[in-house]
Design a binder for these strands. Structure first.
Lengths: 238, 238
DNA sequence: GTCTATATTCAGATAGAC
DNA sequence: GTCTATCTGAATATAGAC
C-alpha cells in the first residue's frame, strides 16, 4: 500500500464515507453525490478509483471481510488442531464465529460498529449483485463452520443445524444492525449507541447466551426421525 | 374510500402489486412505473388513490397490520382473562405473538408469505419515515407483550427481556425475510419457497423451539447483579 | 376515475482540460 | 489524479383533457 502522507488518501476517504452512508441510508438510498460530498472529494473520483457504484460497495466490504474471513478460518484451524480429531464444543464454535465478528466492533481500524451495522443491514438488501457478492465472499467460511457444527452436534439432523445457523445469523444481524429499528419497535432505548468500543462487549455478553440457548433447544418433533435424540432440557432462566 | 364498482378494483390491484414488488426489490428499489406496470393500471393512479409513494407504502402495511395487531391483542386479552391474574407461560406468550404472525403466511387473504417476507425485510429499511411509521403501528402491542413477559419472567431484569425480545424478532424476521439472502450465505437451500401455505407451519415448528431456547437461556453474569461487569462465561457448555 | 403529456429533480457516468 | 461541465436516463409528481 503506497502511503499518501501529504494527502489523506482520496481512496480511503471515499471508502470510509461510503461505509458510513451505506450503513445509514442503504445502498439505493445513498447517492454518489452524498458520498463524495461527505468525503470531500470530487464527484468523478469514485468512478476513477472504483469504476462504478456497485464496484464501490464491493470494495467497501472486501477490505473488511478479508480480515474477518481470515481470522475466522485461523481460529477454526487452531481449535481443530488442538482438538486432535475430537469434535469441538458448540460454544467454542459460536465464540469463534460470532466473537470474531463482534471484535471488529471494538477496533476502529477494522471498521468498528459502523461496519458491523452495515454488514447486518446489507445482508437483507434485495439487490441481486449484493447477494451474489456475499455468496462468494462467505462460501468457504460458512462451509467450514457448518461442518464443524455437524461434528459438534452429531445427533442433530444437518438440516436442523443449518436452520439454526440461519436463525443465529438473523438474531445477531438484527441485534447489531437493527439497533435503532428495533428500538423504535420495542419503544425502548438500549445502551448500544453511547457505549462506543464497549458496545461490542456488551453485545457479546447479551447475545451469546441467547444464541447458545437457541442452538441447543429441544428439536421439533418431526425432525427427530433419524435416531431419537435426547431432548436437550433448555436450562431455565433465572 | 368510496367503493369502486364491479372492476377488479384499481386500488387493491395497486396494493397487491406494491406489496409483492416492495418485498422483492425494497422500497427504494421499486419505482412507481414498476408498480403500475405490474398492476396494469395507469401511472397516475397511484398518486390519485394514495397521494404519494410513501403513503402507498404505509397503506400496504396498514391493511395487514390492522388485522395482526387486533388478533395479537385479542389473544393476549383472552389468555390473561383465563389466567385470572396469574402470570402467563412464556411459551404461550411467544405462541400468541409469533404464531399469529406465522398464521398470516398460511392465509392468502391476509397477505400470505409475500406479506410476511415484506414485513421482515422492511423492518431494516433505513428510511426515516418507515421507522416512525412502524413505531406508531407497533407501540401498543409491543408494550402489552413486553409487560406480559415481565410478569412471566419475574426473576429476569427487564432490560434483559427487552434484549431477548429484540433477538427473537431478529431471528424470526431473518427466518422469514432473509430466506433467499441467508440461503445464499449458508449455501444451502431450505425448503421454504416451494411449500406454499405449509411454509408457515414448517417455519413455526423450526423457529419456536429456537426462540424459546434463547429466551430462557442462562443470564449473562453482569445482568444478575448490576455492579460487576465481568467478562462472562455463558454458563454450561456441551 | 382514468388517461396523456409533461414538469422537475436527481441519479450514475464520462469527456476532456489541467 | 483531480476537476468542471455535461450527457443520458429515470425518478416522483401533477396539470388538465376526457
Amino acid at each position: 500500500m503506497s502511503e499518501a502522507r501529504v494527502q489523506p488518501d482520496t481512496r480511503e476517504r471515499i471508502l470510509d464515507a461510503a461505509e458510513r452512508l451505506f450503513m445509514e441510508s442503504g445502498y439505493e438510498g445513498t447517492s454518489m453525490r452524498m458520498i463524495t460530498g461527505a468525503a470531500g472529494v470530487n464527484l468523478a473520483a469514485v468512478n476513477y478509483h472504483f469504476g462504478s457504484k456497485e464496484a464501490l460497495l464491493r470494495e467497501v466490504f472486501r477490505r473488511r471481510l478479508a480480515w474477518l474471513n481470515r481470522e475466522r478460518l485461523r481460529l477454526l484451524d487452531e481449535m481443530e488442531a488442538q482438538a486432535k480429531g475430537e469434535p469441538l464444543k458448540p460454544s467454542a464454535i459460536l465464540e469463534a464465529f460470532f466473537g470474531t465478528l463482534l471484535h471488529m466492533g471494538t477496533d476502529e481500524s477494522l471498521g468498528g460498529m459502523t461496519f458491523l451495522r452495515l454488514l447486518g443491514r446489507t445482508l437483507t438488501e434485495p439487490a441481486d449483485f449484493i447477494r451474489t457478492f456475499f455468496a462468494g465472499e462467505y462460501a468457504e467460511v460458512v462451509d467450514r463452520y457448518k461442518r464443524a457444527l455437524f461434528r459438534a452436534l452429531p445427533d442433530v439432523p444437518h438440516e436442523e443445524i443449518i436452520w439454526r445457523f440461519h436463525l443465529m445469523l438473523g438474531a445477531m444481524s438484527y441485534a447489531i444492525a437493527g439497533t435503532d429499528a428495533l428500538q423504535v419497535v420495542t419503544g425502548c432505548e438500549l445502551d448500544l449507541n453511547n457505549e462506543g468500543p464497549r458496545a461490542a462487549e456488551l453485545l457479546s455478553a447479551r447475545v451469546m447466551p441467547f444464541l447458545l440457548g437457541g442452538l441447543r433447544a429441544p428439536l421439533p418433533q418431526f425432525a427427530v426421525s433419524p435416531q431419537q435424540t435426547r431432548k436437550t432440557e433448555p436450562s431455565k432462566a433465572a
